[in-house]
Simulated assay, not measured.
Amino acid sequence: MLAWEATMMASQSTEPAPHAEPAPHRDLWPGIAGLAAAALLITGHVLWMRTPDIEGRGAIRRVVLFYAKDSNRDLSEAATLILLAAGLLFLFFVVALSRLAGNRSHLVLVGGTVFTVFLMVAALAGNIFAITVNHSDVFPVVPATSLAAILLLHVAYGAMVAAMAGAAVMLFAIWRAAQETRAVPAWLGWAGFVVAVLSLAGPVSAWLTPLLLALWMLWAGVLLILNARVREGEGRET
């Protein structure tokens, strides 16, 4: 009787978990999210770069002429939604990146979260003037109100500087992980290192580095998808 019970327990212990999630999907969907976030970041940043020059003389006039056009306000509102969506997808993507970073996963998560938060702040601050004008009948585009737009555009740029500082922490952590483990290709680690170094010059480079980060995200997203396909192939062989 005891021998029969021991045999039954051994057979039950070798049965696979009934609700175990297939390993390939762990990186597949985050990889797709990374590709989508990168595409949205590029699109939103290009729209954001259309805002008028707010330095030097004539800034008030340029701001008034820009926001007086309905099409410019509509594009600003679209840029907000695009960048917010990019931030949400990036959070899904950065969790998968943290798994590749090993014992530096906490730095990847912290840096990625800081980037996401300040990206959203930049998206809202840089476009809230256009959104307000579009949806309010008592907030006209005149020289007096354009001063608020100039202030908000400065806040948006400052938030983007902070966002790229967070991204630099994430990229440096992945670069170090690439030196210690084969989970991250060396070329991807070094590419991230270059973007991270450029991001440290935030006040003069924040207009460009989000685009470089988006290109790096495209490569990393493809890597995650390829990893998922490799695991799927190995699972079929076994």
Rank of each mutant, 00 (worst) to 15 (best):
W4A: 09
A10F: 00
Q12H: 04
Q12I: 09
T14I: 08
P16K: 05
A17G: 07
A20V: 02
P22L: 12
A23W: 14
R26N: 10
D27A: 13
L35Q: 02
A37P: 01
L47A: 10
D53Q: 07
G58M: 06
A59V: 04
A59H: 10
A68C: 10
D70S: 14
S71R: 14
S71Y: 09
A79S: 09
T80A: 05
L81P: 00
L81R: 06
L84H: 07
L91W: 02
F93S: 00
G102P: 11
N103V: 13
V108N: 09
L109K: 10
T116R: 03
A122W: 04
N127R: 04
I128C: 00
I128M: 01
T132V: 11
N134W: 06
H135Y: 12
F139G: 01
V141F: 12
S146R: 11
A149R: 01
I150Y: 06
L152F: 00
L153D: 06
Y157L: 08
G158S: 07
V161F: 04
A163F: 04
A163M: 05
M164V: 07
L171R: 08
F172G: 08
Q179Y: 10
R182C: 06
A183P: 01
P185H: 03
W187M: 01
G189L: 09
W190C: 02
W190T: 13
A191V: 12
A191F: 15
G192V: 06
V194Y: 14
A196G: 09
L198H: 07
L198P: 03
G202F: 08
G202K: 11
P203D: 02
A206M: 08
L213W: 09
A214C: 09
W216T: 01
M217P: 02
L218T: 15
L223C: 06
I225V: 14
N227K: 09
A228S: 15
R229Q: 05
R231F: 00
R231W: 09
E234A: 15
G235I: 14
G235Y: 13
T238Q: 13
T238M: 15
